[in-house]
């Protein structure tokens, strides 16, 4: 490579080595960026907290508890038959984000409504048993949710989110 005549080489060959060097250098910088970016992702200790276990045996009908999951409130409501009927008698045409109440609970566990208690508008926590539909009401910007957690009125675009969960027994619930 370091022959005397090198500088007389055709420009294409001269360019090739510079292009190769630049390309390899850019790839290297890209590889350095990777750890600097991913370090901000959830770390291993955060990911390990992705599941919570809840004992629901002490919740009576018509009551609800709030538990923390991934730093967010989870509403666990044991609904009365009356509330279930009310939720199911709503016509889908009246809903902003049409979804049957049956699709928001586990089959055979219809009394349990388990959802992420975060308003889908901008992330506030709605108040229970308030608003025009007997469900939840978000005080931040006035979103009304019904007893199935579905958006009925106000700026929120969709129903409150249902997390992954399962009942490992009648009394034990695992969220996540």
């Amino acid at each position: 490579m370091n022959k005397k005549s090198d500088y007389k080489d055709k420009p294409t060959r001269r360019e090739f080595i510079h292009i190769a060097t630049t390309t390899v250098g850019v790839v290297g910088v890209g590889c350095v960026a990777l750890p600097l970016v991913t370090q901000m992702n959830p770390d291993a200790s955060v990911k390990a907290l992705a599941k919570v276990e809840v004992d629901v045996s002490r919740i009576s009908k018509g009551n609800e508890v709030t538990v923390m999951w991934r730093g967010k409130p989870i509403f666990i409501r044991r609904r009365t038959d009356q509330e279930i009927n009310k939720a199911r008698n709503v016509s889908l045409k009246d809903l902003k984000d049409p979804q049957k109440d049956e699709d928001r609970v586990k089959k055979g566990k219809d009394e349990w409504l388990i959802m992420v208690g975060v308003c889908t508008h901008l992330g506030c926590v709605p108040l229970k048993q308030q608003g025009e539909f007997g469900g939840w009401f978000c005080p931040c910007h006035g979103s009304h949710y019904d007893i199935s957690g579905r958006i009925r009125k106000g700026p929120a675009p969709v129903n409150m989110e249902i997390p992954n969960y399962e009942f490992v027994s009648d009394s034990k619930l695992i969220i996540g």
């Binding site: 490579m1 090198d6 001269r14 080595i17 060097t21 390899v24």
Partner: peptide
């Protein structure tokens, strides 16, 4: 990677300084 890159940079350098 650094070894390969150093060779490339070295060749580039030789080329440039050969002017």
């Amino acid at each position: 990677y650094l070894l390969i890159f150093s060779i490339l940079v070295f060749l580039s350098m030789k080329k440039i300084w050969s002017r």
